[in-house]
Design a protein around this nucleic acid. Structure first.
Lengths: 141, 141
DNA sequence: GTTGACCTTGCCATGATGGGATACCTATCT
DNA sequence: AGATAGGTATCCCATCATGGCAAGGTCAAC
């Protein structure tokens, strides 16, 4: 059966032992078998799930999404449409978030460009944070 | 002096009353004067600071950054270089984060494109999450 | 004098992760 | 056998920004 300890499972999957226990506590993975001394021992299927979770997390999926994806993976009669729907929704979230960050960056870059960045105290960045009404004719007419 | 209650300060600045109290508790803003009944009352300078904070938060600055920006704003002998340095560092953080999200989105889009998205169970998205080694010749040679 | 709207403090929750404390188990070295 | 080292268990706390809820005080209007 090739049972491994939590540290070995961690090394094999790249998920910290701390997180492995956490996933168990929130029901994302099944509780593994315990030896007499109450140590957790993981089998191949457990390791697969942990790897699956890590790769999904690397793609930015939330635990709730991962829970569904894992369920779909286990369900051999799933429809790929369900998986794709989750992915497309997540892609939209990622893109929205990225666009938000890009907008902040753009605004800030514009301000930073017009800032001398020397010993003088006057600074358009502070002025922008200062102004009572950020809306106006300058940006979104 | 035009003193206003916390709800009015909230309405005027767009910062929730909850957050205003929180900012006070972490020392981001000064404790306002209290009336006899212990109600907080904010003056013009307080409102300015709250507006400043909200605009800085809208640009994604952390509280620690905002603390420094507020200090710089109050210091009339500041050098704009200091402000610009904070802004440039933050711009880099924003861009890094956006790039990270974009990379996730790109990977996921590639997978989603090759997924039928119909009633059939086979799905490249699940396969990608499945595979033991995500590194390989397909992406980063 | 009651109702409703506002204010106060304090605790808990999020999401994903890390840190630390304390205690137990096991293996190795002296 | 005793000491030392290291892995494991559980539990609590912290992050960061924000919201919710509860219990109680205060004020104005009806």
């Amino acid at each position: 059966m090739n049972l491994v300890t939590i540290a070995q499972a961690s090394a094999a999957t790249g998920v910290s032992a701390k997180m492995i226990r956490h996933y168990e506590s929130i029901g994302l993975i099944r509780a593994p078998v315990r030896t007499e001394n109450r140590y957790r021992h993981y089998n191949e299927a457990d390791l697969h799930d942990l790897g699956f979770i890590r790769r999904a997390r690397d793609l930015g999926f939330s635990f709730e999404d991962i829970r569904q994806l894992l369920d779909l993976w286990r369900d051999k009669g799933r429809s790929s449409a369900e998986v794709k729907a989750i992915a497309l929704r997540h892609i939209k979230e990622l893109d929205d978030k990225a666009a938000q960050l890009a907008a902040m960056s753009r605004t800030l870059k514009r301000l930073a460009e017009s800032c001398h960045g020397d010993a003088r105290p006057d600074c358009p960045i502070l002025e922008a944070l200062d102004k009572p009404a950020p809306a106006g004719g300058c940006c979104n007419p």
